[in-house]
Design a protein around this nucleic acid. Structure first.
Length: 493
RNA sequence: GCCGCCUUAGCUCAGUUGGUUAGAGCGCUGGUUUGUGGAACCAGAGGUCCUCCGUUCAAGCCGGAGAGGCGGUACCA
């Protein structure tokens, strides 16, 4: 600290972006806006209403459910208000909802069904598709204890992902319940909190590490590629086998998985109760028409180690994603949720059953950007500034186009024509308007369709020919400019 | 947090046994063409060789420490 303070940063060293806090440009902003609009549209259709809370909450309202109880100060961004109370940026949209519900008390009718979209902040190590500031889009039902409320969340989540254009097999929502997991833990005689936690964490990695990796983690431990060692849960060989058999009970259909689980679960109270929960959810999913491809029961889903009390769900992008750099990226989880019956009780004393689903907008947008599915957006029409002594001509024409409802700008600067054309090209302009001495004398404007121009240019080899051809170019009387430009712009859209 | 790899221009990188003024391609800004996107040619801008300390007559290159980045792992409400 002291060394750095003594040598203040200057110049480029000063222009540093904190990692994990993305700068978003045109294409990404529009992609995210479309995602939010689509997802909230589905939530509204299912009868949820909008609720926005602010970025900051008091740290104690975010509660003991901090990111990592091993490192209580990491995970959230916190600061002290001028009355010395600790405030923290929200790390999800659920904890603030619980605070809101508790604060409103009986005044809020129940069940309360709300959706929300906005940024959340987590102070963690960022990675590809993983940020310290990112958007989530949530729906929650507060005050509904029945399992059909959880099933509704799951089916609606699947519908939202479908609405975003995902095809069968491109994503899956995997469903489990904490009670079933508790049954397994009881079944192998895991009593200490540490051991139970280690087993759950190992299970959660089944899809990434595979059965042998999970077996290592359940037993003595596992060494990763870099040689780092992770201590295991310390189960005996027989227990490892039983836990793995349970975790791998997932099958093609929900009914088959349930049948497998009935065999693997054993006779513990919690196990039976958990199985019953999943059966009830499966039934409701049937009624809601949730496709088998979209929603699977998967006993290896753990998720939410702290506040989930019952069913948990995890949405995963299955498509393999290859970036422009040729590298393959694993996007993984793009959403999830579950039942959190005790969260409101922290504030109110009164237990309020609640369940919710959350879609990770930023991660999805990053995935779609990597997939190259960002929208190609047209830039503005550019009016070239050729009469350098009289920039008012270009300004006036641009104003006229805008008045006609066309997105347009006059070129700012006094460069030659070539740089101005290059500028319009880089902006992805649909057209440029060219008015120089010739046009002024004739009372016309020249309009160039840049897309047609680009297509025709491919067939032209010499530079002279290219210039002579002036592809995609028309000259119209000045009075017809707005209409002629509009035709070109609309043909692009 | 732990482990590994990496750090030279906006980007991708070259840079010999330590040797004088650190380069290329792409990109950017312009010009050749007072008026045409691609191509060609020409020019220009752009560098704390990550930082500091050390070794040396001499360090982008060698040694040490630190920082940052990437990947893995842990964690992920």
């Amino acid at each position: 600290m002291s060394t750095k303070d003594a040598q203040p940063l200057t110049g480029k060293d000063l222009a540093r972006k904190p990692r994990g806090f993305p700068d978003k440009r045109e294409a990404l902003i529009h992609a995210q806006a479309r995602l939010v609009e689509t997802v909230t549209g589905v939530y509204r259709q299912w009868g949820f209403e909008a609720l926005e809370t602010s970025a900051f909450e008091y740290a104690d309202a975010l509660g003991k459910f901090l990111p990592d109880s091993d490192r209580p100060n990491a995970g959230v961004f916190a600061l002290q208000d001028d009355d010395e109370q600790w405030m923290a940026l929200r790390y999800d949209l659920t904890a603030p909802l619980a605070r809101f519900v508790a604060e409103q008390g009986q005044g809020l009718g129940r069940p309360f069904r709300r959706y929300a979209a906005g940024p959340v902040w987590r102070n963690e190590k960022p990675g590809p598709g993983r940020f310290r500031e990112f958007w989530q889009c949530d729906a929650d039902t507060v005050g509904a204890p029945g399992l059909h409320a959880d099933a509704e969340m799951i089916a609606m989540g699947a519908e939202a992902l479908r609405a975003l254009g995902m095809k069968p097999g491109e994503f899956v929502i995997r469903v489990n319940t904490r009670r079933l997991l508790n049954g397994v833990l009881d079944g192998v005689g895991a009593t200490s909190a540490d051991t139970r936690l280690a087993i759950l964490r190992a299970l959660d990695k089944l899809d990434r590490l595979g059965p042998s990796g999970v077996a290592d983690l359940l037993g003595a431990g596992r060494k990763d590629e870099s040689g780092d060692f992770t201590k295991g849960a310390g189960l005996g060989a027989e227990e490892v086998k039983r836990v793995l058999a349970f975790a791998e009970a997932g099958a093609d259909t929900r009914a088959m998985t349930l049948a497998n689980l009935a065999k693997a679960t054993g006779s513990t109270e919690e196990g039976k109760a958990g199985l019953g929960e999943l059966e009830a959810i499966a039934l409701a999913l049937e009624a809601l028409g949730a496709p088998e491809d979209d929603v699977k029961i998967d006993p290896s889903v753990v998720r939410g180690l702290e506040y989930y009390t019952g069913p948990v769900f995890e949405a995963e992008l299955l498509r393999e994603v290859t970036g422009e750099d040729g590298k393959k990226y694993r996007i993984g989880s793009i959403g999830g949720g579950g039942r959190y019956d005790d969260l409101v009780a922290r504030f109110a004393g009164e237990t309020v059953p609640a369940t919710g689903f959350s879609i990770g907008i930023s991660r999805l947008a990053a995935a779609l950007a990597i997939l190259g599915e960002g929208e190609k957006l047209d830039g503005p029409v550019v009016v070239l500034n050729l009469e350098k002594d009289n920039p008012g001509i270009a300004l006036g024409l641009a104003a006229e186009l805008r008045k006609g409802g066309i997105r347009a700008e006059a070129y700012m600067g006094a460069s030659g024509m070539r740089p101005q054309m290059k500028y319009a090209d880089r902006r992805s302009s649909p057209a440029v308007v060219i008015v120089g001495t010739d046009e002024i004398e004739k009372g016309t404007v020249t309009i160039k369709d840049l897309e047609i121009g680009a297509q025709k240019a491919k067939a032209i080899s010499s530079n002279e020919e290219y210039r002579e051809a002036r592809p995609g170019q028309i000259e119209v009387p000045r009075a017809q400019m707005v209409e002629a430009v509009r035709r070109i712009v609309e043909a692009h859209a």
